[in-house]
């Protein structure tokens, strides 16, 4: 990649930050260059974010209908998935899945709730209720 060909396609996901890439300068030497963004990269990142948003939206609807607990919604909203969350709290996946059921979620001990809230980066009060639509 030549230095003048380094893509400069800013996108809102970068929030104005630049990244470094290595590119060939006019003397034919590779050196570090700044890029404001690349379309191929921002496209796929958007796609991944859309997928997470879709999962979160789906979980939110089921949670409002009382079919699942807020835990599942916040898991997706905070960009985690089941294997990741289970590993982070040191439980099996089936145990975490059980906590997706409102009946068992309501019975969780404060300590367990705190741990879930901590790994998700939110506080307990947020975790136990759904966001206002």
């Amino acid at each position: 990649m030549k230095k003048e060909d380094v893509p400069q396609q800013p996108h809102r996901i970068y929030e104005g930050e630049t990244k470094a890439v290595y590119a060939v300068n006019q003397e034919g030497k590779l050196e570090i260059a700044q890029t404001a963004g690349w379309e191929a990269e921002s496209t796929v990142l958007e796609l991944a974010l859309e997928e997470i948003a879709r999962l979160a939206e789906d979980a939110l609807q089921r949670a409002s209908a009382g079919e699942t607990s807020p835990l599942e919604y916040y898991m997706y909203a905070q960009r985690m998935d089941l294997p990741m969350l289970a590993q982070a709290v040191g439980r099996f996946q089936w145990q975490v899945k059980k906590h997706f059921k409102p009946k068992y979620f309501a019975r969780l001990k404060p300590k367990q709730l705190e741990l879930y809230a901590k790994v998700l980066g939110i506080d307990v009060a947020t975790l136990t209720k759904l966001p206002d639509a």
Binding site: M1, K19, A20, V21, Y22, A23, I32, T35, W38, A40, E41, V44, L45, A48
Partner: peptide, 13 residues
């Protein structure tokens, strides 16, 4: 996902 692993995670291109 392949493209993200290749470009997004700070790889220098």
């Amino acid at each position: 996902h392949i493209v993200r692993m290749q470009e997004e995670i700070g790889t220098g291109g």
